[in-house]
Each structure stands twice: as C-alpha cells, then as structure tokens.
Design a protein around this nucleic acid. Sequence first.
DNA 1: ATGGTTTTTACTGCGTC
DNA 2: GACGCGGTAAAAACCAT
Length: 324
Amino acid sequence: MSENTRARARTTESETEQEQEHESEQVDCPECGGNLVMDDEHGETVCDDCGLVVEEGEIDRGPEWRAFDASEKDEKSRVGAPTTNMMHDKGLSTNIDWRDQDAYGNSLGSRQRQKMQRLRKWNERFRTRDSKERNLKQALGEIDRMASALGLPENVRETASVIYRRALDEDLLPGRSIEGVATASVYAAARQAGVPRSLDEITDVSRVEKSEIARTYRYVIRELGLEVKPADPESYVPRFASSLGLSDEAEHRARQLLQNAKEQGVHSGKSPVGLAAAAVYAAALLTNEKTTQAAVSEVADISEVTIRNRYHELLEAEQDLPMA
DNA sequence: ATGGTTTTTACTGCGTC
DNA sequence: GACGCGGTAAAAACCAT
C-alpha cells in the first residue's frame, strides 16, 4: 500500500506565508489579520474573524506532567500541581520519611517509632496497592503520547485516563495488552468528547494492530457499559473543511446536508467518515469553491469512489425534501 | 465459518483546459 | 495530454449470525 494515501494533508497553501512570530502569544491570522484564538475544546487554533484553522493540534504546549520517579517528579511538576487523573496517583500520594526522627532531627521515642511504623505500612499499602499502579503509570504515558500525536485536547486525555482506570479496576486487563487497552481508551474518549478520530488515524499513532484496537475497544465498551453513540458525521466536518481551506459557509452547508440526510435516514450502515467527506465535497461544489474529490479523499482517508456514491445520495436527499 | 453489505482497488471513457 | 469526474466490476474488509 502506498504511503501517499496515508499522508496527512498539510494546510500549507502558499510559499508567501510570512514567518510567524513564535515569541508572542498574540499572533495575527495570515488570512485576514484577525485574532487567533486557542480552541481547547477541539485542540485547534482558529481565527476569530474568518474561522481559518491555523494549526490543528499537532503541537502540545502543555507541561510535561509525566514523572517516572520521585526526583523527576520534583523537577517537572510545577508548584501546586493540579490533581489530575493523568498521574497514576493523581499526584496526591503522601511520603513518610524512613528515618525515625522528628522534624528537628531528634530521634523518636519508642511509642512514636511504633506509630510511625504503622503509618508507613498503611501509607505504603494505599499508595501502591499492587502492581496495578505500575501498569497504570505506563498506560497513562502512552495515552498522553497518542493524544498528543493526534492533537487531542486535554479533556479527552482526562477521559481516556478515567476509562483506562476503570478498565483496570474491573480487571479487564488480563489477556490484553496495556497498549491495546490504552489505545482503545483514547479512541473511546475522543468519540465521547465529540472530536472523533477514525480508527485508521488511531492506528497510525498506536503500537498496536488495528484489529486488536477494534477488538479491545468493543470489549472495553461492553464491559464498562459505556454508551458511545455511533460517531456523528458532523463532528468530522470542521476538521476536513479547514484542512481544505474552505469557507465557513461551505462548512455550514455541509452540516445542513448531513442533517437533512439524517432526517431521511439515508445513513444506516454507511461509514460516518465517508458521509462527512462527501458532505464537505458537495458543500464545496454548492458554494463554488474549488476542491477535488482527490483532495477530500486525501484529508478524510476515504476513497474517491465512496465520496462519489455518498455525495450523490446526499444531493438526492436534499432534493426530495427541499424546504420543510 | 458464512453470507450479506459496504468500501476499496483498478481500470475505462468523457469532457475540458 | 493531463486532469477532474463518473461509472463499473471484482476484491477486500466488515458485521451479524
């Protein structure tokens, strides 16, 4: 299979783009000069005025919260770290010194020593309940890595972490790889948050085979009783539209097409990504903006044939029920 | 495993710049 | 002639049974 078909489309349109200043937070939109705003919800930087998406995720500016041991944690975490599910113990564990001394360095009496022994024991029991904690640590690292690579916003990472944590609590891990479950968690979290990434995109950043991800994902969903509605085609639209440099109008039009199609139940069994891609293409046509099927196919990772089939259906549906 | 459905691959013909 | 688009047939992938 050619790698070309897999290649993500870059948003670079022209060589005339000026170097953007990296120092300042306030950068002007290359298109219209408007304000650029970070959209945490979708992990995108968009222009206030014209809606141009300048960068989609890719770069994760967040601090590196991962810590592998105590000393590293001290270095990396900022003062007053927020509690977060992204750390294996939510960053809240207590450490009790092993020395039998008080804060001034005086040694303790025997009563105090015994007390400290008991405290240490229990603290240890709570902190690293068993090997699950190690497991969790590694998995959260992976989740973080993949989410970054996919340009997913913070809240998705949080959700993924929670899902993984639950899977671990429910003893779903035996027989499955940490990687696999971690990947499935990310996949599920992204979908739940309404910023879905296709299985293919997920596979690209995971170390696990597609089939295993799918299998594990289904398993986790079922066992945890998570409700994940089939991905809404509309949620793909903004990403595709901006990758192709289409206008807001076209994007809006694409949404309409999809809503209309939804009402008529044209879906059912068709891949949401395909629908979204077709809608984007059709919308570009309707608003007289230049795009090719090949381009859409590229950004959506969907074959041109599928786009053709879908967009015919979309336009038909539009005509059957013009204005309600 | 099987059969039905959807998606992809590969190829071909048509019109236009 | 290359490009964008449309169609088709056969293969592959997917899903429920």
